Amino acid sequence: MIIQALAFYLFAAITVASAFMVIASRNPVHSVLFLILAFFNAAGLFVLMGAEFLAMILVIVYVGAVAVLFLFVVMMLDINFVELRQGFLQYLPVGALVAIILLTELVLLFGAWVVTPVAPQVVQRPIPPVEEVTNTHALGLILYTDYFYLFQTAGIILLVAMIGAIVLTLRQREGVRRQSIPEQVARRPKDSLEIKDVPTGSGI
């Protein structure tokens, strides 16, 4: 029990410190590396809570895909952050206003926090043994039964966001050859191939 408590405080402290260094680091590459460290330690916290599936998803999806993608984008774009910081004071009032609004919403949210009356009944429900229902099985049952519509709604929102990002970044530039799928499908061999009858002995 003491080892679990020490591991929890260790993972929690490193996670909080890494999250702070993500926003405090001057180098964006270092910020992404601290973000990866925070994800790893958050996965360790999930393992301590018995949610090994969420820990695996956090490492595979966020560390293996999202954070590494951030790292490659930051390194490939070669952004001049000195120029970006020059207009910081110009947008400071707007940023402060948004921060005050978000802080007010959080205060109102946690101030109106109440425990649902059915919470004791839910807690007292019999929990099946781990040998019968695994962590992944239990999570799948909850997602695809009680929260099925919310799960599908989240997928639709992500799909719309992905399509919007593609539409916003799609640019028509002159002089660039683009792929035309209908032309490739409708293309026939006689349009691209030509049979030459070379007489015997007249070749190279």
Rank of each mutant, 00 (worst) to 15 (best):
V73A: 04
R26E: 06
R125W: 04
L97R: 05
V98R: 10
P129H: 07
F34I: 02
S25L: 11
V73N: 02
V47L: 15
V115E: 10
F81L: 15
V29N: 02
A65N: 04
N27I: 00
S25H: 08
V29P: 00
P126E: 09
F72Y: 12
F81N: 13
G64F: 05
V107Q: 11
G50M: 04
A42W: 00
L37R: 09
I60S: 04
Y62Q: 09
M49N: 10
I36S: 11
L69A: 12
V29M: 06
E105C: 11
M75N: 02
S31P: 00
P120H: 04
D78F: 05
E83L: 15
S31V: 00
V115P: 00
V47N: 15
M76N: 11
A96F: 08
L109P: 00
I36F: 02
A119E: 03
Y62L: 02
I36N: 09
A67P: 00
I57E: 09
R85A: 13
L103R: 02
L109W: 05
G95H: 03
I36Q: 13
V59G: 01
P93C: 07
L48G: 09
V29T: 12
I127F: 13
Q86L: 09
D78N: 14
P126K: 08
F34R: 10
V68A: 12
F72M: 14
V122C: 07
V63F: 03
G87W: 01
M56A: 12
F34W: 15
G50H: 03
L77I: 09
V61M: 06
V59I: 14
I60W: 00
V59D: 01
A65D: 04
L58Y: 00
I36M: 14
V74D: 01
A43I: 00
A99M: 06
F72H: 07
R125V: 01
L35H: 03
F40R: 09
G44M: 12
Q90W: 06
V63I: 10
I36V: 07
N80Q: 05
E52F: 02
F53T: 14
A55G: 11
P93Q: 04
L58P: 00
P93F: 04
E83K: 15
L58V: 00
G44R: 12
V114R: 15
L48T: 08
V118S: 15
F46Q: 13
L103V: 08
V107F: 14
